[in-house]
């Protein structure tokens, strides 16, 4: 068994007095796909935001690709550059064209030559099938197209890990499929992925493991087949009966 690329040990996090994450232990090996599910307010989003330190944790260790995340971490930008993230609200930069959205970080963070960055960006946009929209602005695209662009933008940094924070929750039902298709093909390409989602079909199709969270705790963590066929805790059973 190889060393885990993400290792979280006894992690606790508070927002003020409120404890959002309680004693989280999680190991993710390279090329694994993890789906995190659970009711809203259970801390799923906060958990993956901790992995690239958009949120700070107060106790415990988070080790990403051999680097420990703490206040002392000097080059947090370097770690973030290795961890791509896709948000629920897309968060594209509205003042830049689709192509510039994708090339901005490679050019300025990775110091890639402009030509090379553009080729890479067009390549990634082609994979999510919006290369024909490259010169439009985010405001001119549909939600599904914007979210696919956000995926391409994250991939342009050539990350080792991809985090998805409810990528389809803000989309119309017919656009969900196009985004999920892009994610499935990314998963088949061998990317390490942690996906917070309610799309159980997606979980069944690509996930290696499913994590169920409630009230800031990991309630259940199991292989995908096992999770759906044979959930252990009552809370998970209740959740699954409601969502499926």
């Amino acid at each position: 068994m190889s060393d885990p690329i993400i290792k979280i040990q006894n992690m606790n996090k508070w927002f003020g007095d409120f404890q959002v994450l309680k004693n989280i232990n999680l190991e993710v090996e390279a090329n694994k796909k993890i789906v995190v599910c659970g009711p809203s307010g259970s801390g799923k989003s906060t958990l993956i935001r901790c992995i690239n330190r958009l949120e700070e944790h107060q106790e415990g260790d988070i080790i990403v690709d051999g680097n420990e995340l703490s206040e002392k971490t000097k080059d947090i930008e370097k770690i973030r550059a290795e961890v791509g993230m896709v948000f629920q609200q897309f968060n594209l930069f509205p003042h830049l064209s689709i192509l510039d959205n994708c090339t901005l970080a490679p050019i300025w963070v990775k110091k890639m030559p402009k030509k090379e960055a553009q080729e890479l960006a067009l390549d990634q946009l082609k994979k999510v099938q919006i290369d024909d929209q490259a010169n439009k602005f985010p405001g001119q695209l549909s939600g599904g197209q914007q979210q696919r662009c956000a995926i391409a933008r994250a991939l342009c940094m050539q990350p080792k890990i991809m985090l998805f924070d409810e990528p389809t929750s803000a989309l119309d039902p017919e656009m969900i499929k196009e985004v999920l298709d892009a994610m499935v093909s990314l998963a088949k390409g061998g990317m390490t992925m942690i996906v917070v989602t309610h799309e159980m079909g997606f979980a069944k199709e690509v996930a290696d493991e499913v994590i169920f969270m409630d009230e800031g705790m990991i309630i259940e963590k199991a292989d995908t087949k096992e999770f759906f066929a044979n959930p252990k805790s009552d809370r998970t059973k209740l959740f699954l009966s409601q969502i499926l």
């Binding site: 935001r49 930008e77 370097k78 993230m85 968060n91 594209l92 901005l104 970080a105 300025w108 994250a154």
Partner: peptide, 12 residues
């Protein structure tokens, strides 16, 4: 979200 997105791309 704009700050989050920029940070997540590794920008300082």
């Amino acid at each position: 979200g704009q700050y989050d997105a920029a940070k997540s791309l590794g920008m300082g």
